[in-house]
Amino acid sequence: MTTATLLVSCPDQKGLVAKVADWLYSHNGNIIHADQHTDASAGLFLMRVEWQLAGFNLERQEIAASFQPLAAAIDAKWQLHFSDRVRRVAIFVTKQDHCLYDLILRHKSGEINSQIPLVIGNHPNLEAIAHNFGINFHHVPITAETKATQEKLQLDLLHQYQIDLVVLAKYMQVLSPQFLAAFPQVINIHHSFLPAFPGAKPYHRAYQRGVKIIGATAHYVTEDLDEGPIIEQDVIRVSHRDAVADLIRKGKDLERIVLARAVRLHLENRVLIYGQTAKSKLGLRTVVFD
Rank of each mutant, 00 (worst) to 15 (best):
N28L: 15
A181D: 13
Y25W: 14
A260H: 04
V140N: 04
V288D: 00
L103R: 00
M172N: 05
P184R: 03
E50D: 03
P124W: 08
L16Q: 05
P195D: 09
V17R: 15
Y207S: 08
T5R: 10
T277R: 12
F137A: 03
T217L: 11
A76H: 09
I187N: 06
D22V: 11
V186C: 08
V89H: 04
A206Q: 14
A76E: 05
N269Q: 12
L70E: 09
Q79G: 08
T222N: 10
Q185G: 03
F193D: 06
L180F: 03
L6M: 08
L175S: 07
D226M: 11
R241I: 03
P141N: 04
Y25K: 13
S280E: 11
S114L: 07
Y171T: 07
R205M: 03
E62N: 15
L157I: 14
L265D: 09
D246V: 02
L153S: 15
L80A: 06
A40E: 04
H98V: 00
N132P: 08
Y171G: 10
E223A: 11
I187R: 01
Q115N: 13
Q79E: 04
K201G: 12
H123E: 02
R241N: 05
S192D: 02
H159G: 12
G15L: 10
V186N: 04
R249H: 08
L267Y: 00
S26F: 12
T38R: 14
N30F: 09
D39K: 14
P117S: 07
Y171R: 00
K281T: 07
D97K: 13
I189T: 02
L158Y: 13
Q154A: 11
S114N: 06
Q36N: 15
I120M: 10
